[in-house]
Each structure stands twice: as C-alpha cells, then as structure tokens.
C-alpha cells in the first residue's frame, strides 16, 4: 500500500470521526443531509458484501467494518436519538434518493466488468459513491449556514478521493496489471463534484472566515 492510498483512507476515516464528533458533542445534526448518509450506507453495504467471500488484508477488513458500523451509527443518531433527531433539517433535505439510485443501478447493469450479482452490486456502489454527496451539497447551498465541522467533514471527504487519484496514478506506473477504468472514471466525477466546494472552502479559509457560500 502506498502513502497516497493510506492518506486517502485516513482522510475518509477522519471525515467520519468529525461527523460523529459533531453529532456527539453538540447533540445536533443540523446541516447534515440524511439522504447523503443513507446513500453512503447503501454504498458500503453493496460494496462490502465481499467481506463474506474474499479476504485481502486485516487492514481492509477492519476498515470495511468501521465504515459499515459508523455509517449505520450516524443514521441511528439522526433517526432515533431523542435530541439529535430534532435538529435534522427535514424540510430542507428534500433530495430524492431514486434520482441517483436508479441511474446508477441502470448504468451498473450496462457498464460493468462482468454481469454477475456481486459484480453489478460492486459497480453500482462505485457509481453511487461518486454522486452520493449531491444531497449534502444541495443542503449546504440551501441552508448556507455551514458550521466548521460540517465544512471540514465535506473537505476531508473530498480530499479522500483526490488522494485516491494520486494513488491510482502511482499504481498505474508501478503495477502493470492494475487497470481499473470504471473506478477511475467514477473517482474523477466524484472529485469533480467537490471542485466548487473546495474553491469556496479554501477562499473562506484564506480569509480566516467561516465557510460562506455565494
């Protein structure tokens, strides 16, 4: 495993720690999109089905279990925790799941490496992950009040895929058999979706202010 990949994973993990920290310490999930959290949970469930039939490393297994458990944990807080659930922006978080889930499912059925149940589900998870942040970005645009932790959460989530791109470039040159065109295309789309956010995030950071969206 190269340093880009490790840094990417740590950035991903850190973004989840931030969100749990925000919810736990402030007992609030204001500004967080439950739709995005549900989509990520669906991503992890469909991708990590391979926990049942393939083993790569202890590191991978532990990380997969952490991602699964934490995404269900976040959802539990937002849905059932007495105080946290009252802070959820239900009226603003109106993005419909099917707008993303259906096209990703159709695309996974058409463009995949192999037409098998596990492979199509895996491909679906790759496509869905690329766009799962959209409800969160829409919510951000609507509410405009972005607290520091939410801003940092989205920043590290975006940084994770950007670091993965560096990891893919590195592996492309060092491992001749490593060619994952589907993943690369989806990863580029995913990182691209953050471009706008990154721009405003860095601008606010440079000015020493809280994140402000136009």
């Amino acid at each position: 495993m190269n340093l880009f990949r490790l840094a990417g994973d740590m950035s991903h993990l850190f973004s989840i720690v931030l969100i749990l920290l925000k919810i736990y310490t402030s007992k609030s999930c204001a500004g967080l999109s439950m739709k995005t959290q549900e989509l990520y949970t669906l991503v992890f469930v469909t991708r990590y089905l391979d926990l049942f039939y393939s083993y790569v490393s202890l590191y991978n297994t532990v990380m997969k279990l952490i991602f699964l458990a934490s995404s269900f944990g976040i959802l539990w807080y937002m849905r059932y925790h007495k105080q946290v659930k009252q802070t959820y922006d239900r009226e603003q978080d109106t993005f419909r799941h099917y707008i993303l889930v259906v096209p990703c499912a159709v695309l996974a059925l058409i463009v995949n490496n192999e037409l098998s149940v596990t492979e199509v589900l895996w491909t679906f998870s790759i496509y869905l992950e690329a766009v799962a942040i959209l409800p969160q970005l829409v919510l951000l645009q609507r509410t405009k009040n972005v607290d520091n932790l939410t801003g940092q959460y989205i920043f590290f989530l975006g940084a994770y895929r950007a670091l993965y791109i560096l990891n893919w470039i590195y592996r492309y040159w060092t491992e001749p058999k490593y060619r994952q065109y589907l993943v690369w295309a989806a990863g580029l789309v995913q990182t691209g979706l953050y471009a706008d956010f990154f721009y405003y995030y860095l601008k606010s950071w440079q000015a020493g202010e809280k994140l402000r969206l136009p």
Binding site: N60, N113, E119, K177, Q180, Y181
Partner: peptide
C-alpha cells in the same frame, strides 16, 4: 484474469 479482479481498495 479479469481486469477488476484486484479489488484491494476500500
């Protein structure tokens, strides 16, 4: 050997 057989990323 499928191109995507190495699913060693997260």
């Amino acid at each position: 050997d499928s191109l995507a057989s190495t699913k060693d990323e997260l």
